[in-house]
Design a protein around this nucleic acid. Structure first.
Length: 152
DNA sequence: GCCAACGTTGGC
DNA sequence: GCCAACGTTGGC
């Protein structure tokens, strides 16, 4: 079992949207490192910290779980989609996505600032300067710690 | 809305 | 295969 942090802009898709939808296709990932995590490393049941970026304050707001293994991101084939990529074909798909399922809100969101201030979370990628990856691996300890902090 | 940091593209 | 130009991310 692995643990992940997945970023989203709440204006685009929030934890409340996920609660309403129950599951969602994580389309639109156009970064090879993030794609490779989905394609190669994610397994059914992997745990996800759901993170709101580009908002005030940024931070982890809820929990989710991988509920469908990586499959081609067909938005890349749709000329009308903002995720269209002519270099991704049905014969040779370049981009992949997984589905994730809602698992709950944190009672209190764990802000980026709170993560920075927690000494035991010093190694979390999300607080590393210049870190823009929208899908990041986290350790089991980090995952549990965030849940603990968010339960208050 | 600014801009630093970073990834990707494409000319050479 | 280098690297400048460009686009995007995301905190502030």
């Amino acid at each position: 079992m692995k643990f992940w942090l997945m970023k989203t802009e709440p204006d685009v898709y929030s934890i409340d949207d996920l609660k309403r939808d129950n599951t969602v296709q994580w389309e639109g990932i156009r970064n090879y490192q993030a794609r490779n995590f989905m394609m190669n490393d994610m397994a059914l049941g992997d745990k996800v910290l759901f993170y709101h970026s580009n908002t005030t304050p940024p931070g982890v707001v809820g929990l989710a779980e991988v509920c469908k293994l990586a499959y081609p991101d067909y938005f890349a084939w749709d000329v009308d989609s903002k995720y269209f990529d002519p270099k991704s074909t049905k014969e040779n798909p370049r981009w992949f996505m997984v589905d994730i399922a809602y698992k709950g809100h944190l009672k209190s969101p764990v802000s980026l600032d709170a993560i920075k201030k927690e000494p035991s979370l010093i190694d979390m990628l999300v607080i590393r300067r210049g870190m823009r990856l929208s899908i990041q691996p986290v350790t089991q300890f980090e995952y549990n710690k965030i849940i603990k902090m968010g339960a208050k």
